[in-house]
Amino acid sequence: TETYTFDSEDQAEEFAQRAQKKGYTVEKRKENGKFKVRVE
């Protein structure tokens, strides 16, 4: 499980979609103005 942090929602969304296409489970959340994407 890895967590990635992005400054913009667009970046987080793009990353999450790519990860989902590769078959990963993706969980997105906003925390302290940053966008976190957890991938497993």
Results as ranks from 00 to 15, higher is better:
25 T>I: 13
35 F>M: 03
18 R>T: 09
22 K>E: 13
32 N>P: 02
11 Q>V: 09
10 D>H: 09
32 N>E: 09
28 K>Y: 13
26 V>F: 04
13 E>P: 00
29 R>T: 14
9 E>R: 05
6 F>D: 00
18 R>Y: 11
32 N>W: 04
37 V>R: 00
33 G>I: 02
39 V>L: 11
24 Y>M: 08
7 D>H: 06
17 Q>T: 11
36 K>Q: 13
13 E>F: 06
32 N>Q: 08
2 E>Q: 14
24 Y>I: 05
20 Q>L: 14
24 Y>L: 11
1 T>F: 14
33 G>E: 05
12 A>D: 00
7 D>C: 14
20 Q>H: 08
20 Q>R: 14
23 G>M: 02
18 R>E: 12
15 F>N: 00
25 T>W: 12
1 T>Q: 10
29 R>F: 15
9 E>T: 03
39 V>G: 01
37 V>G: 00
4 Y>T: 02
18 R>V: 09
10 D>T: 10
6 F>C: 08
27 E>T: 14
1 T>S: 13
19 A>F: 12
19 A>I: 09
22 K>Y: 14
16 A>Q: 03
20 Q>Y: 09
16 A>P: 00
11 Q>G: 05
25 T>E: 08
12 A>E: 00
14 E>M: 09
28 K>W: 11
9 E>M: 06
27 E>G: 05
36 K>M: 15
19 A>Y: 13
1 T>D: 10
20 Q>N: 07
2 E>Y: 15
17 Q>N: 10
25 T>R: 12
36 K>F: 14
6 F>N: 00
38 R>I: 15
25 T>D: 07
7 D>I: 06
27 E>F: 12
34 K>D: 03
30 K>T: 11
17 Q>P: 00
14 E>H: 08
20 Q>M: 14
31 E>W: 06
27 E>L: 10
3 T>N: 05
12 A>V: 02
29 R>A: 11
38 R>E: 07
25 T>G: 06
36 K>Y: 15
33 G>N: 07
10 D>V: 10
34 K>V: 11
32 N>Y: 05
33 G>M: 04
24 Y>R: 05
16 A>E: 03
6 F>M: 01
30 K>A: 11
35 F>L: 03
25 T>P: 04
36 K>L: 15
10 D>C: 08
18 R>A: 13
22 K>I: 08
15 F>E: 01
36 K>A: 10
26 V>A: 06
6 F>G: 00
29 R>K: 11
22 K>M: 15
7 D>M: 06
19 A>H: 08
25 T>H: 13
20 Q>T: 11
34 K>G: 04
35 F>N: 01
38 R>H: 08
23 G>D: 02
31 E>G: 03
24 Y>W: 09
29 R>P: 01
21 K>G: 09
26 V>M: 02
31 E>V: 09
